[in-house]
Design a protein around this nucleic acid. Sequence first.
DNA 1: TGGGTCACG
DNA 2: ACGTACGTGACCCAC
Length: 954
Amino acid sequence: MTDTAPARKKLFLLDAFALIYRAHFAFSKNPRINSKGMNTGAVLGFTNTLVEVLQKEKPTHIGVAFDAAKKTFRHEQFAEYKAQRQAMPEDIGTAIPYIKKIIQAFNIPILMVDGFEADDVIGTLAQRAEEHGFEEVYMMTPDKDYCQLVTEKVKIYRPAFMGNSAEVLDLDHVLQRFEIDRVEQVTDILGLQGDASDNIPGIPGIGEKTAKALIKQYGSVENLIANVDQLKGKQQENVRNFAEQGLLSKELATIHVNVPIPFEPEELCCSVPDEEKLTALFDELEFRQLAARVLKTGPVRTSATPISPAKGKKSLIPTGAGHQASLFAAPVGITEFIEEDEDTGPIVRRTLADVAHQYHLVDTPALRKELLKFLLQQKEVSFDTETTGLDTMTARLVGLSFCWLPGEAYYVPVPHDDDAAAQALVDEFRPFLEHEGILKIGQNIKYDLTILKHYGIRIGGPVFDTMLAHYLLEPDMRHNMDVLAETYLHYTPISIIELIGPKGKKQKTMADIPPAEVADYACEDADVTLQLKHVFEPKLEALGLLKLLNEVENPLVPVLADVEYEGVRIDSSAMGEYSAQLQGYITDIEKQIFAEAGQEFNIGSPKQLGEVLFDKLQLGGGKIKKTKTGQYATGEEVLSALAPEAPVAALILEHRQLTKLRSTYVEALPQLVCSLDGRVHTSFNQAVTATGRLSSTNPNLQNIPIRTEKGREIRKAFVPRDADHILVAADYSQIELRIMADFSQDATMIEAFRQGIDIHSSTASKVFKVPLSEVDSEMRRKAKTVNFGIIYGISAFGLAQRLGIGRKEAVDIIEAYFQEFPAVKQFMDASINKARELEYAETLLGRRRYLRDINSRNATLRGFTERNAINAPIQGTAADIIKIAMIRIHDWLDKEKLGTRMILQVHDELVFDAPKEEVDLIIPRIQELMINALPLSVPMEVEVGTGQNWLQAH
DNA sequence: TGGGTCACG
DNA sequence: ACGTACGTGACCCAC
């Protein structure tokens, strides 16, 4: 980065606060807390951005601008300016001194001028730089206000963010995005539409779209005001009444390029960083990876102690009286060291190299025997499997690790190139693995259960999954073990990439690494998992979530492992035939579309489609919807509206449907059929949804078509395993509305369910005030939509949209509904109030969904969160109920040694593959177990069907 | 890699 | 005044 006569002068100007805020919120889902309890997300994010731009863009000159601490001239113009902006989060406040020190350590100047904001400083310097012959000037910020400063040479550089790559906005880009001729007009648009985050008022009733249209027509706010007479109705009134406010807003949005700051290129020259200072700072902040990247120094680790049987009879597995506490002279492990830190000061133990540990390689028959003996003495053990890959159907076991005391773990390599030997080794540990009295702890333990199933092991005893424990604690965060270790143990485990290398063509697996090296990694995983369990358990207890974990989530794990392992048989040849048939339809429709369009094009490309429809064919009659990226919108809604006047729109919709069916289902599913058993094995993820539902991936078997004729056909390919079996599908009828009835205790709704009346007809009868017998299908359809709306946290606009009716009519329907079901209204209000107070909503079993935006001043965000406050307990309770039913049914089938297998869960439906002779036995029992899983004050109803395929079973 | 679209409850 | 139903995952195209 030294100045070696650069050919082009390239200046980067960073907007510090904008980048810091963005970095801070980027880490809000996965907060980075160091061992001193400091949230380092903002510092890390900002520094990463800085390092990246230095390394990738290699600027010749650079500066970082901060807003002045004091009020700026804008506050004098408008007292309310940025008034409603929330106080700076405390974590950002503590981050700033560090960020400044880091910038200084990089020998980069900090730019700050009293009375001005960073954008004014950057704008001024950018302009001067251009005057001084700089070929490239980049303003680094995510803030769109800067668009007004862009010129041929001055551009905006939006740093890479949350997976997005960095983006440069040049002059063309800005003009196109704002639909303007000159960049200065950005201030006119911002002045009209205002900016809620800066409390710039704008003119009421004018948003982004109106602002663009008006400026396109009138060129400026001033000219718009001068021609206010040409406007119509309410808009004219607003522009007239708020003319001054509009002009002020434009002024506030204008970046001033006359800041009294000298332009001294030498000051901004890039120079080498002060490595000593950086090392100290990164050390203090505990940025190890960043330090390694910037300072080219890597971590050093010790390896596991191999146990050599030749070294004598003395076992390295401590012996003792069988009491855990007496096994060791002194407790070792991560947790203990953290506690010491607090007492003794700044020593921070963070990786394996820093932490006292005894990780043992157990690789002889004698040692394995001894390990087993100890395992069998424990009440709870964490364990982990190492395998050759992540695909459970093909992965083979490489090793097993065990831990029952923090800091002390054992790794048993498995001969992965010899199936018989591997089986024999696993069998050695069968007494432990199948022991009913020992709690098995794991991180995502379903994976380990599934791997062991391939070796004929059926894990005994209860399981405890730390991933699920954390899912209950923080449902909307990630539950990756490395992150959990960082956050809760202040410990950085060896990364898998460090061990087996990055993903690539010749990806190594655990099998390619010497067992002694794998031992550290594997032992550490078991160790960390055990310690996480000990951290999570009291937290769950305190929040009343331990019962939900122990009685629902954890017991569900082996059930799901079985369901996935069992798989679903797919009739691939039927799929193949249907694929050909669909292809026939598709080709036919394509021809018709091209004929209508007068040209061939890619119908699957929204861009090309939009151009054909709206530019070439001139459809839509003027009012054409666009997406936020400026393309023509061609969604279902738009095309349906077009269909009456343009048959081509209907054809495109049909084409979309058919290609969707072909690519997502008919073509994809047979590819996922396992060659070993001819079935597809989905993965049920138990820790992704915010509400407690399961999700299904690879393939997703929870969204197999049913709503349309051609879609339904696909279900015919879901078949029983053989001719002696049959599919049984059991689904809860209206489970969410029943839960609403129970929660609200609405007398009318409860009565309808107790009477067994069709709930949508019943609602229609009440809302439209006609006798039940006079409810027609149209009324029922509307009532059904209303009932769904109720569960989702209804809004008049949403209902109107769905029903294709006016807003007024929707308001009337909702009012009528609440009049007839007053307790439902009360319940909805109470749910929101409760959530406002607690900042979370909870299900009947106490499962939480945090709603931290429920008190937001942002009305849109708040509204969204309020609907969640209503929906989450309902959707989540339904999820709780079916999970309990699954556990009970699984247990019963197991206990009765029946051949029936649960093969799918689709939120309110369970599908079984049953021997034909068991059908009469299982149906009433499945019904009973589902109905009584969690009794409510209204009866539950479960419909059951059977068939030779999934469609028939409905 | 994200946005658009669409499949399900 | 503002933007709108709740929860998911997969595919395609264009960048």
